[in-house]
Design a protein around this nucleic acid. Structure first.
Length: 434
RNA sequence: GGAGAGGUGGCCGAGCGGUUGAUGGCACCGGUCUUGAAAACCGGCAUUGACGCAAGUCAAUCGUGAGUUCGAAUCUCACCCUCUCCGCCA
């Protein structure tokens, strides 16, 4: 294993063996995900790599044996010059082979980091997003005796949202919350955190929101999605696109105790996304801003528990929306839609009546051992052996679209917005924003 | 940013050019003893890769990378991280 320049030190070589032995499975996975990676190129480079390993290792064996002979000769005060001369030549040859080998290892590793996780059998196989499966819906879409207005109109009119002025201080696609809008955002954050901490048993973490390349390569956003991230070039660190990165990377290179699993973490953080490739899409209001707030949930579990823990996590996210009394649906994503690191993913979408559409507000993924392998997070079992943990992450939930959904679902004819009951204690007695 | 000290197996901690993948302790697993447990004693206990049906053989790994050497945990250089002191700063 030779770590790449970024300080990434995960155990990706395990992957290569699996890929070699399950080439067709991987090929199908790439196809199902609509991924164009050239698997044959990878397999070919791996074969070259292994040939070089074999050659180099044979020579190293000889070097080790003869070095011991030299030590023995010297001990007996005998002449070892001839052998030393021969070893010098072998040493040069080894160096040459290792150099070649390094080139292939780097190529293989670079490509391995681009192989996505293998979906769970319960995931619908399709390259068409239409084949996402609606699992359940909750709540009733509100009916208005007036034409409901979109959140950007409501927010601007109430003076709680400023969607234009941010271009003066940052650029397009950034939002400013003002007055009771800022307070509502803060109320949502606190409400969600308290729910997950006090009722669902998560431990609150307040992490760095700048992360290094190794950590974010471990969670899988790199190397594939580098253009979607902001980067601090001078230090090669990145503002996080989601708190999943620091929360999952928290235990990088650690061996956990079995009795300590599962681990539940939650954190509020802002999230930063360049949204490259989506210019002109959802440009209005809060739908696709480059900085948004999110409360995130992360779990580290034993492999046999991850599916059940995943379902529980989805319910934890659903409860947020239920308590806010917003209509939503749960979607099981098909193969082309699930994230790079995920083997199964549910999206929660909240109804936005003025736009007559669903807004994706949470994504709950089971990543299996994919991230754990890249981050080298294991746990020690009763028999003393170590095994990779499973990692899960889910939004609990994303704020911007929830904020938008509240404005649209709770709007009244006079332009005011009723504060959802559960948020009232967090709003200092304000029950209507007007 | 400057000056020092240090980074060794799950943890602690020896080693400072030639069977050292690495003494020892703790933890963990198995056993003896015990009514049971503890203690004591005995044994086991790193990871990854290549080859192999397998048993296994070989290679690599002592922060990371490069160098010196026939041979490096041990010597040299660069970088990263941790700690202490100084400076700067919210």
């Amino acid at each position: 294993m030779s770590p790449c320049l970024c300080g990434y030190s995960g155990g990706f070589m395990i992957d290569m063996k699996f890929i070699r032995e399950n080439a067709e499975l991987i090929r199908k996975n790439l196809q199902d995900r609509g991924n164009k990676l050239n698997l044959d190129e990878l397999l070919g480079m791996d074969e070259e790599r292994r040939k070089l390993i074999k050659k180099a290792e044979e020579l190293k064996f000889k070097r080790n044996v003869d070095s011991e002979k030299i030590a023995q000769l010297k001990k007996e005060k005998k002449d070892a010059d001839a052998l030393i001369k021969e070893m010098k030549e072998i040493g040069d040859e080894i160096k040459k082979l290792d150099g070649e080998l390094g080139v292939y290892e780097k190529k293989v590793n670079d490509m391995l980091l681009l192989i996505p996780n293998i979906p769970d059998p319960s995931v619908p196989v399709s390259t068409d997003p239409k084949d996402n499966r609606e699992v359940r819906t909750w709540g009733k879409k509100p009916e208005f005796d007036f034409q409901p207005r979109p959140h950007w109109d409501i927010g601007e009119a109430l003076g709680i949202l400023d969607l234009g002025r941010a271009s003066k201080i940052t650029g397009a696609h950034f939002a400013i919350y003002k007055g009771l809008g800022a307070k509502l955002e803060r109320a949502l954050i606190n409400f969600m955190l308290d729910l997950h901490i006090d009722k669902h048993g998560y431990k609150e973490i307040w992490p760095p929101i700048l992360v290094n390349r190794g950590c974010i390569t471990g969670t899988g956003q790199l190397p594939k999605y580098e253009e979607d991230m902001y980067r601090c070039d001078l230090d090669d660190i990145f503002p996080i696109p989601t708190a999943e990165v620091p929360l999952t990377g928290f235990h990088k290179d650690e061996v956990l105790e079995e009795k300590d699993l599962p681990v539940y973490y939650t954190a509020y953080t802002p999230c930063f996304r360049r949204e490259a490739g989506s210019y002109g899409k959802d440009t209005r209001g809060l739908l696709r801003v480059h900085q948004f707030d999110k409360v995130e949930m992360v779990k580290l579990t034993k492999p046999e528990d991850s599916d059940a823990e995943h379902e529980k996590m989805v319910q934890n996210a659903e409860e947020v929306i239920q308590l806010l009394k917003l209509p939503y649906r749960v979607i099981l994503l098909c193969t082309v839609e699930i994230g790079f690191s995920a083997r199964k993913c549910y999206d929660l979408e909240i109804w936005a009546p003025a736009q007559n559409r669903w807004l994706e507000s949470s994504s709950c993924s089971n990543c299996g051992d994919f991230q754990a392998r890249r981050l080298n997070i294991r746990y020690r079992k009763k028999d003393g052996k170590t095994e990779l943990v499973h990692t899960l992450n889910g939004s609990g939930i994303a704020l911007a679209r929830t904020f938008a959904a509240i404005l649209e679902n709770y709007q009244q004819k006079d332009g005011s917005v009723i504060v959802p009951d559960v948020l009232k204690p967090y709003m200092g007695g304000v029950d209507v924003i007007k």
